[in-house]
């Protein structure tokens, strides 16, 4: 492997990692703060991609489509929380897994009813659909650089909100001590709804970003969901910092694993990594509330 190829593969790994972070951020936020395992996160991811694709088709404007898709996915998430998931905060994890599994099935068939079985196209605006010359030997797809930038911005933004703002303080208070937070006059119910909607918006954003480079089709959320859960757990449930680091590790390990190892081993490598990390640190890299 030449040096420039190594650099390009490293960039691929980091870019894949940042993509994984985008997918996992909402999941770990909801999981960590409300103690809710939301398997339907993948369904929200799919919704974001389908809505964006439809909006690009009808408005022809990529940026309008991004905004509409993110807001609409947040809305779907909020409705889902109000109608069903709200009553599951106090139930055990198994019930949460089951009800959100049911939601995945429902979402998949609803999308099929609305959009049909044919995968849809998410058309990128001209400058994003080509590639740019980064180094002498490295030509890189432009939109992957956009994903990289958006992912890093989201990471910074989340870190800032959770650590430095009043809302973030409330969120952390709600997560660690719900009765106390209520006693201090924080409307925990509202905060939880907002956090859930924010998590859904992140899923939608990730879905439309991924939809630009891969297939927008029914069921696209499920394979990604597993990866997001892997990232969440390796990082330590609820830890944004952990999720970011875990996503980068997995992105890089997976990329090089695929190139350097035989295919069967390449598919196994991130699961072997997860088992090893959890055997070593049973609560992930950055345990929250440890």
């Amino acid at each position: 492997m030449s040096f420039s190829l190594f650099i390009e593969q490293l960039l691929n790994g980091v870019q894949f990692g940042v993509m994984l972070f985008l997918i996992s951020a909402g999941l770990t936020l909801v999981f960590g703060i409300m103690n809710l395992i939301n398997l339907a996160h993948g369904a929200l991811y799919m919704s974001g991609a389908f809505i964006a694709a439809a909006m690009i088709k009808y408005t022809g404007n990529f940026f309008v489509a991004v905004v509409v898709a993110v807001v609409a996915t947040a809305g779907i998430g909020a409705v889902m929380e109000r109608l069903i998931l709200r009553r599951f905060y106090a139930r055990d994890h198994l019930d949460q897994v089951l009800v959100t599994f049911g939601l995945i099935l429902v979402f998949n068939d609803l999308v099929r009813l609305v959009w049909g079985v044919v995968p849809v196209q998410l058309r990128l605006p001209g400058p994003f659909s080509g590639s740019v010359q980064l180094m002498a030997e490295v030509q890189y797809p432009a939109f992957r650089l956009v994903i990289l930038a958006v992912g890093l911005l989201v990471a910074l933004g989340l870190y800032f909100v959770v650590v430095h703002t009043r809302i973030g303080m409330w969120i952390r208070a709600g997560a660690s001590n719900r009765p106390m937070a209520s006693a201090l006059g924080v409307d925990v119910g509202l905060i939880f709804s907002l956090v859930f909607a924010a998590g859904a918006a992140l899923a939608g954003l990730a879905g439309l970003m991924a939809g630009a480079i891969s297939s927008v089709q029914v069921g696209m959320g499920e394979p990604v969901l597993i990866l997001a859960l892997v990232v969440t757990v390796i990082g330590g449930i609820g830890s944004i910092r952990g999720a970011f680091l875990a996503a980068l590790i997995i992105g890089i390990v997976d990329t090089f694993g695929r190139v350097l190892l035989p295919p069967a081993l390449g598919s196994m490598v991130i699961f072997m990594l997860m088992a090893a990390i959890l055997a070593w640190r049973p609560k992930g890299l950055f345990p929250v509330n440890a």
């Binding site: 859960l229 449930i237 069967a264 609560k283």
Partner: peptide
Amino acid sequence: RTSGAYFIMITLAFNQMLFYFFV
């Protein structure tokens, strides 16, 4: 060694490893 959600995920990891082994 793990518990709760971590146990779910580590067993899932072992399941996937065996799946790819048989593939």
